[in-house]
Amino acid sequence: MLWDGVQVTLLVGVCAMALALVMGLLGAWGKLSHSRTARTAADTYTTVIRGVPELILILIVYYGTPTLIQTVLESFGHDIIIDINPFLAGFITIGFIYGAFATEVFRGAFLAIDKGQIEAARAYGMSRSLAFRRILLPQVWRFALPGLGNVWMVLIKATALISVIQLPELLRNADIAARAVRLPFTFYFAASLIYLAITIVSMLALQRAEAWANRGIRRA
C-alpha cells in the first residue's frame, strides 16, 4: 500500500517538475524580456506565488476553480457540476508554484552566461532562436542544475500536501494504514523514511547530473 503511494507521489512529482520547468523557462523569458507586459506578468506571478502558502493555493485550485467555473456557466444559463480530478489539481498546482521558484533559477542561469557568446553567435549569422537553442540552452543547465535540484527536492516534499485533497499518494496511504491498524507512529515514521530515501537518491542523481553538465569545464 505504501508502495502504491510512492508511485503516485513520484508520478505527481515528475509531472509537476515538468510543468515547473516549462513555467520556469516561460517566467525567465518574461523577466528578461524587453516587453513591459511580459515583465510585469512574470513579476506578478513570482511575487504572488511566493507570498501565499502552498496549502491555500491547492485549496483555491481544487475547490475554488470548479465553483468559479460553475458560477460563470450558471450566469450563462448552464447548470453543470464540475469535479476536478485530484491528481490533475495536485500536479498543476504544485507545478505552478514551483515554476515560480524555477523562474528565479533560470533567470540567474541565463544571466550567468557570457553575453559575448550570444554576440558571437549573432555575428556568425545565427538567428535568435538558433542562438538560443545552440548556445544558451545547452549551457544554461550547468548554471541551473544546482538550483533546479533544490527545487525538485522541495517539490517532492510538497507533494505530501496533496494528501489533503484525498489523492492516494504516500502520506495519504500511510494515513489510511495508520488509522486501520492503529499504529500511527509506525506508519508515519515509515513514510518519513521513504521521503528521506527519495531525497538521498535525488541528491546522488543530482551529483551525477552536475558532473555531466560540467563536462569539458576546467575546474579551478
Binding site: K157, A158, F185, S192
Partner: peptide
C-alpha cells in the same frame, strides 16, 4: 538536521500529533 530537512513538514506534524498516541 538531515531528517528534519529531508522529510515533509506535514509528515512531521502527523508524526508528533497523531504518532504520539501510540505511546
Amino acid at each position: 538536521i538531515f531528517y528534519f530537512r529531508g522529510t515533509p513538514l506535514l509528515v512531521q506534524i502527523f508524526l508528533i500529533y497523531y504518532g504520539s498516541g501510540q505511546f
